[in-house]
């Protein structure tokens, strides 16, 4: 089975006036790195939260690996939320324990290796780390799982360019032909080279789903430049 995510007629309305996601149908394959792009308020995070079962759709359905969203899909989806949920009082080590308990597919060794290469001491408490370092720790936790789907909501916004390169390399090195990585970001230019495909969202609707090289071939410009044109204010 080559399709990983099947979204049918998906809608999320917070109330009659606020439709965050509006009738989206989309099938996403395995083995791809996909950018989820759109201006602020276009519904990216709402879509992501529904994929993770944190919000219930108003209408429509989602299946991941053939399963409806639930305990089974959560065991195979590694999610980096747009803000932290890790307790500041905990040490990095303790959080590793927590992830080992929680996720069967978590590799402590891999996480330790990545922490080391970024010079992060596993004995340090979360609230003594800088904002960017906390973000790195979170990303390491997520990428150290052997999941089918990685959903990264703004993974590189808060980190310096050198760490950004490391993170992109981490994503590439963990590339697995049976898994898909969905990345929501505004820093398109920085990640364009590592993406297979892009999804453009506007006002909760699906505007475009195509490959990066298709955009470049058809429009003679980068996805970053094309985005600026489509969403010009």
């Amino acid at each position: 089975m080559n399709n990983l995510i099947e979204i049918r007629g998906l809608t999320k309305a917070y109330d009659a006036k606020h439709i965050a996601v509006n009738n989206i149908s989309l099938t996403l394959p395995r083995g791809k790195i996909i950018g989820l792009l759109g201006p602020n308020g276009s519904g990216k995070t709402t879509l992501i939260k529904m994929l993770n079962g944190l919000l219930t759709p108003t209408q429509g359905s989602i299946r991941i690996g053939g399963q409806p969203i639930g305990v089974e899909t959560k065991a195979h989806v590694a999610y980096l939320p747009d803000r932290t949920y890790l307790s500041g009082n905990k040490r990095v080590n303790e959080i590793l324990d927590f992830f080992c308990d929680f996720y069967e597919d978590f590799s402590r060794g891999q996480a330790i290796g990545m922490l080391q290469s970024l010079g992060i001491d596993p004995a340090s408490r979360m609230n003594t780390l800088s904002k960017g370092t906390k973000e790195k720790v979170q990303l390491i936790l997520v990428m150290s799982r052997d999941a089918d789907l990685y959903i990264l909501d703004e993974p590189i916004a808060g980190v310096d360019p050198a760490a950004r390169d490391y993170i992109l390399r981490t994503i590439l090195n963990n590339y697995n032909p049976s898994a898909t990585v969905l990345i929501s970001t505004h820093l398109i230019g920085d990640i364009e080279q590592v993406l297979d495909e892009v999804i453009f969202m506007r006002y909760g609707c699906l505007l475009l789903y195509t490959s990066v090289d298709n955009v470049r071939e058809q429009h003679g410009k980068s996805v970053d430049a094309y985005f600026r044109e489509v969403f010009a204010c």
Partner: peptide, 17 residues
Amino acid sequence: VRELAAVAAVNPNTMQK
């Protein structure tokens, strides 16, 4: 493909292509 994609910092599927 994998090694070269990592060196170039591009998507492995693009390198494959």
